[in-house]
Design a protein around this nucleic acid. Structure first.
Length: 593
RNA sequence: GGGGGAGUAGCUCAGUGGAUAGAGCAGCGGCCUUCUAAGCCGAAGGUCAAGGGUUCGACUCCCUUCUUCCCCGCCA
């Protein structure tokens, strides 16, 4: 091959994008297509090829031309492309689809170029290079224990954070803890009423939850209690020393409990800028919005109307309560200002429950008007919302009524169930191995069950669903990983030793697996475009499934050196891809299970 | 009343205007003296909620209707 290496198709990590450029360039060279033509390339049904370009059909329609003839002209132009020579087989089918089949030579070349987590990363980083993104997730309220309803923001947020970082963004992880809300009015009122000493409590969080429940019930029945709670909150927000001290004690015990969960789930933040962090920053928000004419007064509260948006014409955005206290809109606005002006983030991602969609739409609209008036840099804002976890009754799992499953308990149960399966499948393993495996499998299954489905769907909480270990689950992927490690252990060879002895792939299983490996960047691209990790889950499951078929049909450790070498190569790339993908989901991989 | 989500196999869910709508689970039939059977192979399973429309082509876009969940001023 005489062309420079960069020009060759197999030198491109993201084949779809390279192919798109190639097709569009070739199309223009025919003189029959103008700038409006786009290749519209996508993975194809394996019966027809590996990629299909559908763009000829709409173009022909717009220009009243015969699509089939146009497609054939373009295809024959592509046949003579030197960069495609011997790497892809091109054909035209149906009304004007152009199909591309990657040749074994292409596959081998690509797999040699992209061989490890490090090499994937150094290519993937071009997707989001230069972006500075702050992501806000988990964000529990203090004074309460985390329950199953807090699971999704943690798991989805952590995965998205890892994916964005892997794809080259500079990511800042923020835990916007609810430590300054109305719950403190009720809590402080109840603590004082019952003369509780927080320092002497055995199970402080349990006690605080009980106090909160009692206090909450009281405010529902007694006007006096309601006013008491309100005035405690106002005193706290005005800096009353006694209330501040109690508030700090409450937060301290909450943080300890959160940190235990985060440690177990392998989650960490760069900053914990809770609502209280912004308490001296909300006045500027009130002043600026008032001064710009974005906000107005209504029933004693400060609100923003978006009358230009049909949906919100009668639904104001309340940014300051009539008693002068801040609410979550105040702190969220202050947060955007701080993150953009003080920290220089160009993009902010919020990972929360879907029930907050209206809030975030109004928040984003308000920021847009406000920042435009003040000529502040306009950030890109994303609300990554997810469906609600429902109880058996089909209603949202609630904090106040009933007792939702505690996160601590869910995690313990996940590991315990995994342990009993390890015990059953592999009783001879050392105890320390069993425990290590149980933890990875149990926590992995929990995470994967949440990530595998499109985040915008609700689902009913069920132990057996969240902690399933069969089929499309983390253990299935982990099992493929463990089997590959077993092959390398048995062969006693390092991962890349035989690359150069590999012959071209031949069996249907080898070819199908190799082609799937080349498609990894597409899954990454889908995940970052929509901020939906389930694309990666589905890709990894299909990859594992193809690996398992390959593993059953094609023995790796055979005598012929070239066959062994190419199967080794497939194993090493499958391993690298699975491990990379699982790590992006926040799942720890195993060598043994 | 306004707005948003969902409705696809018995169950849980994928599906970017593209070719014969796909998985997992459950159930059925096979495969372990060979690199880990937490696996593989096979068969079966569908009025894509209903009805219209747009077009070369609709699960996908538009309209109407039905079912269901959620949000809509001082909670977050």
């Amino acid at each position: 091959m005489s062309e420079s290496r960069q020009e060759v198709l197999s030198a491109h990590f993201f084949v779809e994008s390279a192919l798109t450029q190639l097709i569009e360039r070739a199309a223009r060279a025919t003189g029959l297509f103008d700038e409006s033509f786009s290749a519209d390339i996508r993975p194809a049904d394996p019966r027809f090829g590996d990629f299909q370009a559908n763009g000829v059909l709409p173009f022909a329609k717009r220009n009243k031309q015969n699509p089939r003839a146009l497609a054939e002209t373009l295809a024959s132009k592509l046949q003579s492309e030197p960069t495609l020579d011997g790497l892809a087989v091109i054909s035209v089918a149906g009304p004007g689809f152009i199909n591309f089949s990657l040749t074994p030579r292409f596959l081998l070349s690509w797999l040699k170029n992209f061989a490890s987590e490090t090499s994937f990363q150094s290519s993937a980083k071009h997707f989001l290079e230069g972006k500075r993104i702050s992501i806000d997730y988990s964000s529990p309220n203090t004074a309460k224990q985390m329950h199953v309803g807090h699971l999704r923001s943690m798991i989805i947020g952590e995965s998205i954070q890892r994916i964005l970082r892997f794809c080259g963004a500079s990511v800042h992880r923020d835990n916007h803890i609810g430590d300054w809300g109305t719950q403190f009015g009720i809590l402080l009122f109840a603590i004082k009423k019952n003369q509780v000493d927080l320092a002497t409590l055995q199970e402080p969080l349990e006690e605080l939850e009980k106090l909160y429940k009692e206090g909450y019930a009281l405010t529902k029945t007694s006007e006096e209690a309601l006013n008491g709670a309100r005035s405690e909150l106002v005193k706290l927000q005005q800096g009353d020393a006694e209330n501040l001290h109690l508030w700090q004690q409450i937060n301290a015990v909450s943080y300890r409990a959160f940190d235990e969960i985060y440690a177990e789930m392998d989650i960490a933040f760069d900053n914990v800028w809770g609502e209280s962090f912004y308490r001296d920053k909300v006045d500027r928000v009130y002043n600026e919005l008032h001064e710009c004419g974005v906000s107005e007064e209504s029933d004693g509260a400060q609100v923003v109307f978006h009358r230009d948006v049909e949906q919100f014409k009668d639904q104001p955005f309340l940014i300051r309560k009539s008693d002068g206290a801040s609410n979550y809109a105040s702190t969220d606005l202050a947060t955007v200002l701080f993150k953009v002006l003080e920290c220089g983030f160009g993009e902010i991602v919020y990972v929360t429950d879907g029930r907050q969609q209206d809030h975030f739409q109004q928040l984003f609209l308000t920021v847009k008007k406000w920042f435009a008036k003040k000529h502040y840099p306009m950030p890109e804002l994303h609300h990554v919302w997810f469906g609600t976890i429902l109880g058996e009754d089909g209603k949202a799992i609630k904090t106040r009524s009933g007792d939702p499953i505690r996160l601590k308990e869910l995690i313990r149960e996940a590991i315990a169930r995994a342990y009993s399966i390890v015990e059953e499948k592999n009783p001879d393993l050392a105890e320390s191995d069993k425990q290590h495996i149980a933890k990875a499998v149990g926590l992995g299954a929990l995470r994967y069950a949440d990530l595998v489905q499109n985040r915008t769907n609700d689902y009913v909480f069920a132990w057996d669903k969240l902690l399933s270990f069969d089929g499309n689950t983390a253990p299935y992927l982990l099992y493929a990983v463990a089997r590959i490690h077993a092959i390398f252990r048995k062969a006693q060879l390092p991962l890349f030793d035989l690359d150069n002895s590999a012959s071209a792939f031949e069996t249907p299983e080898e070819l199908a697996l190799a082609k799937k490996l080349v498609a990894f960047p597409f899954a990454l691209k889908q995940a970052i475009d929509e901020l939906r990790p389930h694309f990666i889950c589905h890709y990894l499951f299909e990859l594992s499934s193809l690996f398992s078929s390959f593993y059953n049909a094609n023995r790796v450790l055979v005598d012929e050196t070239d066959v062994k070498a190419r199967r080794f190569l497939l194993c090493s790339r499958t391993l690298a891809t699975l491990e990379t993908g699982l790590h992006l989901l926040g799942i720890k991989t195993l060598h043994l299970m």
